[in-house]
């Protein structure tokens, strides 16, 4: 088996098959040009993103997921824009989900969460968005008692 593989290898090199395949691949490899984005640029990008005129539910959720998976916590201005985008697309559930995701991202940083919530409170009141505490979603609403706990 090894012999046949070796023979194939020799043949391939002799006929230039492997050489033809390998050489352009090395030549065409493109290395990343690291583009450093400043925090202000990222903030401006997301704020503009959620203000887009052609924003639809798909794009809105994509933007929210982009923020969620980045190593960042959106500043109050972005949060307000997101809430307004949800209002524009008539998706109330998404505002609550966003607030939950925000709270999840801010775990371990209660002061930061309190600051953001204080800043976006006027917008929430203006739109009629309830806080998680008002909704009762700061603790589990639907849950089952574990049978062993009754013992």
């Amino acid at each position: 088996m090894l012999r046949s593989a070796a023979r194939f290898g020799v043949l391939a090199v002799r006929q230039g098959v492997l050489c033809q395949r390998v050489a352009p691949a090395i030549g065409a490899r493109s290395f990343s040009a690291a583009v450093e984005e400043t925090d202000a640029e990222i903030d401006a990008h997301f704020e503009a993103y959620f203000k887009r005129a052609d924003l639809d539910p798909w794009l809105l959720r994509k933007g929210l997921y982009d923020i969620h998976r980045r190593d960042m916590i959106p500043n109050p201005e972005i949060c307000k824009t997101i809430l307004k985008a949800c209002r524009k697309l008539d998706d109330y559930a998404l505002t609550t989900r966003f607030l939950e995701a925000l709270k999840f991202k801010c775990r371990g940083e209660p002061a930061l969460l309190a600051f953001i919530l204080k800043e976006i409170k006027p917008t929430m009141d203006e739109l009629g968005v309830s806080t998680l505490e008002e909704m009762g979603y700061d603790k589990p609403e639907l849950w089952l008692e574990y049978p062993d706990d009754r013992l």
Binding site: Y92, A93, L94, T96, R97, E100, M135, D138, P140
Partner: peptide, 12 residues
Amino acid sequence: LYRHSFRQTFVE
């Protein structure tokens, strides 16, 4: 509305 879109809340 929330339960229409989502099954469980984050804390749940």
